[in-house]
Design a protein around this nucleic acid. Structure first.
Lengths: 127, 127
DNA sequence: ATTCGTTTACGAAGAGATTCGTACAACAAT
DNA sequence: ATTGTTGTACGAATCTCTTCGTAAACGAAT
Protein backbone atom coordinates (compact mmCIF):
# COMPACT_ATOMS: atom_id res chain seq x y z
CA UNK A 1 0.00 0.00 0.00
CA UNK A 2 1.19 3.44 -0.90
CA UNK A 3 2.23 5.81 1.81
CA UNK A 4 0.41 9.09 2.06
CA UNK A 5 2.41 11.82 3.74
CA UNK A 6 1.06 15.25 2.93
CA UNK A 7 2.78 18.28 4.40
CA UNK A 8 1.03 20.78 6.60
CA UNK A 9 0.06 23.05 3.70
CA UNK A 10 -0.97 20.15 1.56
CA UNK A 11 -3.27 18.95 4.29
CA UNK A 12 -4.98 22.30 4.42
CA UNK A 13 -5.71 22.02 0.72
CA UNK A 14 -6.82 18.41 0.94
CA UNK A 15 -9.07 19.37 3.79
CA UNK A 16 -10.85 21.90 1.62
CA UNK A 17 -11.23 19.46 -1.26
CA UNK A 18 -12.58 16.75 1.02
CA UNK A 19 -15.23 19.09 2.28
CA UNK A 20 -16.23 20.78 -0.96
CA UNK A 21 -15.45 18.21 -3.61
CA UNK A 22 -14.17 19.32 -7.00
CA UNK A 23 -12.70 22.80 -6.99
CA UNK A 24 -10.74 25.19 -9.14
CA UNK A 25 -7.54 26.70 -7.85
CA UNK A 26 -9.44 29.91 -7.34
CA UNK A 27 -12.01 28.16 -5.16
CA UNK A 28 -9.35 26.59 -2.99
CA UNK A 29 -7.37 29.78 -2.77
CA UNK A 30 -10.37 31.79 -1.67
CA UNK A 31 -11.21 29.23 0.98
CA UNK A 32 -7.63 29.27 2.19
CA UNK A 33 -7.55 33.03 2.33
CA UNK A 34 -10.19 32.96 5.01
CA UNK A 35 -7.67 31.66 7.49
CA UNK A 36 -4.32 32.26 5.89
CA UNK A 37 -2.33 34.79 3.95
CA UNK A 38 -0.93 33.51 0.66
CA UNK A 39 -0.53 34.56 -2.94
CA UNK A 40 -2.65 32.96 -5.62
CA UNK A 41 0.33 31.53 -7.48
CA UNK A 42 1.52 29.95 -4.27
CA UNK A 43 -1.66 27.97 -3.97
CA UNK A 44 -1.51 27.12 -7.66
CA UNK A 45 2.02 25.82 -7.45
CA UNK A 46 1.22 23.80 -4.38
CA UNK A 47 -1.69 22.14 -6.11
CA UNK A 48 0.37 21.44 -9.22
CA UNK A 49 2.99 19.71 -7.13
CA UNK A 50 0.33 17.78 -5.28
CA UNK A 51 -0.95 16.66 -8.65
CA UNK A 52 2.53 15.47 -9.64
CA UNK A 53 2.77 13.57 -6.37
CA UNK A 54 -0.54 11.90 -7.02
CA UNK A 55 -2.34 13.59 -4.16
CA UNK A 56 -4.74 15.39 -6.49
CA UNK A 57 -6.44 14.51 -9.74
CA UNK A 58 -7.33 17.15 -12.26
CA UNK A 59 -9.50 17.67 -15.24
CA UNK A 60 -7.59 19.88 -17.66
CA UNK A 61 -10.07 19.71 -20.51
CA UNK A 62 -11.27 23.26 -20.12
CA UNK A 63 -9.01 26.19 -19.52
CA UNK A 64 -9.62 26.42 -15.83
CA UNK A 65 -8.51 23.09 -14.45
CA UNK A 66 -10.64 21.33 -11.92
CA UNK A 67 -9.03 19.48 -9.06
CA UNK A 68 -10.26 16.73 -6.80
CA UNK A 69 -8.55 14.87 -3.98
CA UNK A 70 -6.95 11.65 -5.19
CA UNK A 71 -6.48 10.22 -1.72
CA UNK A 72 -9.44 9.45 0.49
CA UNK A 73 -9.90 11.22 3.77
CA UNK A 74 -10.29 7.87 5.51
CA UNK A 75 -7.02 6.40 4.29
CA UNK A 76 -5.18 9.58 5.15
CA UNK A 77 -6.73 9.70 8.58
CA UNK A 78 -5.79 6.11 9.20
CA UNK A 79 -2.16 6.57 8.18
CA UNK A 80 -1.55 9.76 10.07
CA UNK A 81 -3.35 8.49 13.12
CA UNK A 82 -1.37 5.29 13.27
CA UNK A 83 1.90 7.13 12.95
CA UNK A 84 0.84 9.50 15.66
CA UNK A 85 -0.16 6.73 18.02
CA UNK A 86 3.22 5.12 17.54
CA UNK A 87 5.48 8.13 17.88
CA UNK A 88 3.58 10.40 20.22
CA UNK A 89 1.42 8.07 22.28
CA UNK A 90 3.80 5.18 22.73
CA UNK A 91 1.58 2.82 20.75
CA UNK A 92 -1.47 3.15 22.97
CA UNK A 93 -4.58 4.11 21.05
CA UNK A 94 -6.66 4.56 24.16
CA UNK A 95 -4.27 7.13 25.57
CA UNK A 96 -4.86 9.08 22.41
CA UNK A 97 -8.58 8.67 22.78
CA UNK A 98 -8.63 9.92 26.34
CA UNK A 99 -6.48 12.88 25.45
CA UNK A 100 -8.77 13.72 22.53
CA UNK A 101 -11.91 13.50 24.60
CA UNK A 102 -10.39 15.54 27.37
CA UNK A 103 -9.31 18.46 25.26
CA UNK A 104 -11.94 18.88 22.64
CA UNK A 105 -15.34 19.05 24.23
CA UNK A 106 -17.55 16.89 22.09
CA UNK A 107 -21.28 17.13 21.66
CA UNK A 108 -23.64 14.66 23.30
CA UNK A 109 -24.56 13.02 20.03
CA UNK A 110 -20.95 12.45 19.28
CA UNK A 111 -20.35 10.89 22.67
CA UNK A 112 -23.37 8.68 22.15
CA UNK A 113 -21.95 7.45 18.91
CA UNK A 114 -18.78 6.52 20.67
CA UNK A 115 -20.66 4.65 23.41
CA UNK A 116 -22.60 2.77 20.79
CA UNK A 117 -19.42 1.81 19.08
CA UNK A 118 -17.84 0.60 22.29
CA UNK A 119 -20.90 -1.47 23.14
CA UNK A 120 -20.77 -3.12 19.76
CA UNK A 121 -17.13 -3.93 20.12
CA UNK A 122 -17.89 -5.53 23.46
CA UNK A 123 -20.65 -7.64 21.99
CA UNK A 124 -18.44 -8.91 19.21
CA UNK A 125 -15.66 -9.77 21.56
CA UNK A 126 -17.82 -11.79 23.97
CA UNK A 127 -18.24 -14.65 21.51
CA UNK B 1 2.05 29.35 25.54
CA UNK B 2 4.92 28.23 23.45
CA UNK B 3 4.25 26.24 20.32
CA UNK B 4 5.85 22.84 20.08
CA UNK B 5 6.32 21.66 16.54
CA UNK B 6 8.89 18.89 16.33
CA UNK B 7 9.65 17.41 12.95
CA UNK B 8 9.20 13.77 12.15
CA UNK B 9 12.78 12.84 13.08
CA UNK B 10 12.68 14.96 16.18
CA UNK B 11 9.56 13.18 17.31
CA UNK B 12 11.28 9.84 17.00
CA UNK B 13 14.02 11.07 19.29
CA UNK B 14 11.61 12.63 21.76
CA UNK B 15 9.67 9.41 21.80
CA UNK B 16 12.76 7.51 22.89
CA UNK B 17 13.59 10.02 25.58
CA UNK B 18 10.03 10.03 26.90
CA UNK B 19 10.15 6.31 27.29
CA UNK B 20 13.64 5.85 28.67
CA UNK B 21 14.33 9.12 30.43
CA UNK B 22 17.85 10.57 30.39
CA UNK B 23 20.02 9.21 27.62
CA UNK B 24 23.34 9.78 25.92
CA UNK B 25 23.49 10.30 22.20
CA UNK B 26 24.80 6.77 21.89
CA UNK B 27 21.76 5.39 23.74
CA UNK B 28 19.36 7.25 21.50
CA UNK B 29 21.25 6.34 18.40
CA UNK B 30 21.25 2.65 19.23
CA UNK B 31 17.54 2.73 19.95
CA UNK B 32 16.93 4.52 16.67
CA UNK B 33 19.03 2.04 14.74
CA UNK B 34 16.59 -0.69 15.62
CA UNK B 35 14.07 0.80 13.24
CA UNK B 36 16.04 3.20 11.09
CA UNK B 37 19.27 3.57 9.21
CA UNK B 38 21.31 6.62 10.21
CA UNK B 39 24.86 7.63 11.00
CA UNK B 40 25.87 8.43 14.55
CA UNK B 41 26.80 12.01 13.76
CA UNK B 42 23.44 12.51 12.18
CA UNK B 43 21.70 11.65 15.40
CA UNK B 44 24.17 13.78 17.32
CA UNK B 45 23.56 16.79 15.12
CA UNK B 46 19.82 16.39 15.37
CA UNK B 47 19.98 16.31 19.13
CA UNK B 48 22.25 19.34 19.24
CA UNK B 49 19.80 21.27 17.12
CA UNK B 50 16.92 20.12 19.27
CA UNK B 51 18.84 21.40 22.27
CA UNK B 52 19.26 24.79 20.58
CA UNK B 53 15.55 24.88 19.88
CA UNK B 54 14.77 24.11 23.49
CA UNK B 55 13.30 20.70 22.81
CA UNK B 56 16.01 18.95 24.81
CA UNK B 57 17.95 19.76 27.95
CA UNK B 58 21.43 18.48 28.47
CA UNK B 59 23.95 17.95 31.20
CA UNK B 60 27.38 18.68 29.74
CA UNK B 61 29.32 18.38 32.96
CA UNK B 62 30.98 15.12 32.05
CA UNK B 63 32.48 14.37 28.71
CA UNK B 64 29.57 12.37 27.40
CA UNK B 65 26.60 14.68 27.52
CA UNK B 66 23.32 13.47 28.88
CA UNK B 67 20.08 14.57 27.29
CA UNK B 68 16.52 14.68 28.54
CA UNK B 69 13.32 15.84 26.88
CA UNK B 70 12.54 19.47 27.69
CA UNK B 71 8.96 19.31 26.49
CA UNK B 72 6.41 17.08 28.17
CA UNK B 73 4.79 14.28 26.30
CA UNK B 74 1.38 15.51 27.43
CA UNK B 75 1.77 19.05 26.07
CA UNK B 76 3.09 17.71 22.82
CA UNK B 77 0.26 15.25 22.53
CA UNK B 78 -2.27 17.96 23.16
CA UNK B 79 -0.85 20.30 20.55
CA UNK B 80 -0.41 17.76 17.80
CA UNK B 81 -3.75 16.19 18.47
CA UNK B 82 -5.62 19.46 18.30
CA UNK B 83 -3.96 20.38 15.05
CA UNK B 84 -4.77 16.97 13.65
CA UNK B 85 -8.40 17.17 14.65
CA UNK B 86 -8.70 20.48 12.88
CA UNK B 87 -6.94 19.72 9.64
CA UNK B 88 -7.58 16.03 9.12
CA UNK B 89 -10.84 15.36 10.93
CA UNK B 90 -12.69 18.53 10.14
CA UNK B 91 -12.76 19.61 13.77
CA UNK B 92 -14.63 16.59 15.08
CA UNK B 93 -12.81 14.89 17.93
CA UNK B 94 -15.22 11.99 18.01
CA UNK B 95 -14.54 11.13 14.40
CA UNK B 96 -10.92 10.83 15.37
CA UNK B 97 -11.82 8.66 18.31
CA UNK B 98 -13.87 6.29 16.22
CA UNK B 99 -11.16 6.02 13.63
CA UNK B 100 -8.56 5.34 16.31
CA UNK B 101 -10.63 2.65 17.97
CA UNK B 102 -11.40 1.04 14.66
CA UNK B 103 -7.85 0.70 13.45
CA UNK B 104 -5.78 -0.02 16.47
CA UNK B 105 -7.22 -2.92 18.34
CA UNK B 106 -7.09 -1.88 21.95
CA UNK B 107 -6.98 -4.13 24.95
CA UNK B 108 -10.01 -4.67 27.13
CA UNK B 109 -8.54 -2.75 30.02
CA UNK B 110 -7.95 0.18 27.76
CA UNK B 111 -11.51 0.08 26.49
CA UNK B 112 -12.76 -0.10 30.05
CA UNK B 113 -10.84 3.00 30.92
CA UNK B 114 -12.50 4.79 28.07
CA UNK B 115 -15.96 3.65 29.16
CA UNK B 116 -15.27 4.85 32.64
CA UNK B 117 -14.24 8.19 31.35
CA UNK B 118 -17.35 8.51 29.23
CA UNK B 119 -19.56 7.59 32.15
CA UNK B 120 -17.96 10.25 34.26
CA UNK B 121 -18.42 12.87 31.60
CA UNK B 122 -22.09 11.98 31.43
CA UNK B 123 -22.50 12.29 35.16
CA UNK B 124 -20.92 15.69 35.21
CA UNK B 125 -23.04 16.94 32.38
CA UNK B 126 -26.37 15.87 33.90
CA UNK B 127 -26.26 18.58 36.51
C1' DA C 1 -8.04 43.67 -33.38
C1' DT C 2 -6.70 45.48 -29.04
C1' DT C 3 -7.07 45.50 -24.35
C1' DC C 4 -8.01 43.60 -19.90
C1' DG C 5 -8.58 40.15 -16.51
C1' DT C 6 -7.96 35.37 -15.37
C1' DT C 7 -5.40 31.29 -15.50
C1' DT C 8 -1.60 28.12 -16.05
C1' DA C 9 3.48 27.31 -16.63
C1' DC C 10 8.13 27.91 -15.37
C1' DG C 11 11.84 28.78 -12.62
C1' DA C 12 14.34 30.67 -8.97
C1' DA C 13 15.11 32.16 -4.29
C1' DG C 14 14.82 31.42 0.62
C1' DA C 15 14.08 28.65 4.65
C1' DG C 16 14.35 24.51 7.14
C1' DA C 17 15.42 19.63 7.67
C1' DT C 18 18.59 15.97 7.06
C1' DT C 19 22.80 13.80 6.28
C1' DC C 20 27.49 13.14 6.93
C1' DG C 21 32.71 14.12 6.40
C1' DT C 22 36.32 15.95 8.92
C1' DA C 23 38.61 17.82 12.81
C1' DC C 24 39.53 18.13 17.42
C1' DA C 25 39.30 16.86 22.57
C1' DA C 26 39.29 13.46 26.24
C1' DC C 27 40.38 9.25 28.02
C1' DA C 28 42.10 4.42 28.37
C1' DA C 29 45.24 0.81 27.19
C1' DT C 30 49.44 -0.57 25.78
C1' DA D 1 54.35 8.77 25.14
C1' DT D 2 51.91 6.64 21.46
C1' DT D 3 47.96 4.60 19.76
C1' DG D 4 43.17 3.59 19.50
C1' DT D 5 38.50 4.51 20.88
C1' DT D 6 34.69 7.37 21.78
C1' DG D 7 32.78 11.52 22.04
C1' DT D 8 31.53 16.54 20.59
C1' DA D 9 31.85 20.54 17.32
C1' DC D 10 31.60 22.52 12.99
C1' DG D 11 30.35 23.24 8.47
C1' DA D 12 29.06 21.89 3.97
C1' DA D 13 26.07 19.40 0.70
C1' DT D 14 21.67 17.91 -0.41
C1' DC D 15 16.81 17.71 -0.20
C1' DT D 16 12.23 19.27 0.43
C1' DC D 17 8.87 22.79 1.29
C1' DT D 18 7.23 27.25 0.51
C1' DT D 19 6.78 31.44 -1.70
C1' DC D 20 6.38 34.40 -5.44
C1' DG D 21 7.87 37.05 -9.77
C1' DT D 22 7.41 36.85 -14.55
C1' DA D 23 5.83 35.19 -18.83
C1' DA D 24 2.72 33.04 -21.87
C1' DA D 25 -2.07 31.35 -23.14
C1' DC D 26 -6.79 32.11 -23.34
C1' DG D 27 -11.26 34.25 -23.46
C1' DA D 28 -14.28 38.16 -22.96
C1' DA D 29 -15.36 42.88 -23.62
C1' DT D 30 -14.72 46.92 -25.96
Amino acid sequence: MKNIKPTESELEILSILWERGACTVRDVHDALSATKEAGYTTTLKLMQIMHEKGLLQRDASSKTHIYTAAVSQEKTQEQLLNKMIDTVFGGSASRLVLQALGNHRSSNEELDKIREYLAEMEKNQKR
